[in-house]
Structure formats: structure tokens, C-alpha cells
Amino acid sequence: MKYWVKKELKPPHGKVYIIKDRCKGCGFCIEFCPQGVLQESEEFNAKGYHPPKLVETDDKKCIGCGFCSLICPEFAIHIEKEEEEKDEKAD
């Protein structure tokens, strides 16, 4: 059964970077994130819109697909993929 239990296969993670003052509150990233990572925040930015924030409960939900960074019309959000820590014991 050791072939079926591969510890090194973990879902990837991404770090979400948001430039809050660029956001115009269109809501594309919140609506179309495949993992539902983002939600509208209650704070206002300089333009008076509500920029997105992470759904606080789960920090590791983002898989770093980068859909939000592609669909954002304002260049206000981007993703950095987190490097996987390699398990030295595997193999």
C-alpha cells in the first residue's frame, strides 16, 4: 500500500497580494475565485470602494491558480506561489 500513500503530494498554496487603493470594487475576483478565498471587506480604500480580503477562517485555502490576477481589471491583485518544503525523508 505504500504506493498509494504519497506524502509529498500536497495541494499547492499561494500568497495573495492586494494593492488596496487600486481596487474599484467590481467584485470579479470575489465571485469567480474557484476556491472562494476572497470576500468583500468592510473598510474603505482611498477611492471609497471596498477592496477584497481573505476569508479569515482558512489561511491555506488559496491554491495559487492566479485566476484573480488574470481577471482583475485594475492590476490590484496578484499571487505568489509558495515553494513547497521538500520532505527529505521521501525517496
Binding site: V16, I18, I19, K20, K24, C26, P73, F75, H78
Partner: peptide
């Protein structure tokens, strides 16, 4: 938590002094 950033990786392709653009929210 999300990280607040100051710049975007694609900013080098943009004329930074002209951003934000004039297009409406939702365009």
C-alpha cells in the same frame, strides 16, 4: 492574512504615471 502590496509584477509593462486607468468599475 492577505499581504498589502505596493506594486504589481506587470507594472513594468505599464506607464505607471497613468495608472489608475479611466475605465469604469466592471468594465
Amino acid at each position: 492574512m492577505e499581504i498589502e502590496a505596493k506594486s504589481h509584477p506587470l507594472d513594468r509593462y505599464l506607464r505607471a504615471d497613468r495608472i489608475p486607468h479611466i475605465w469604469c468599475p466592471g468594465c
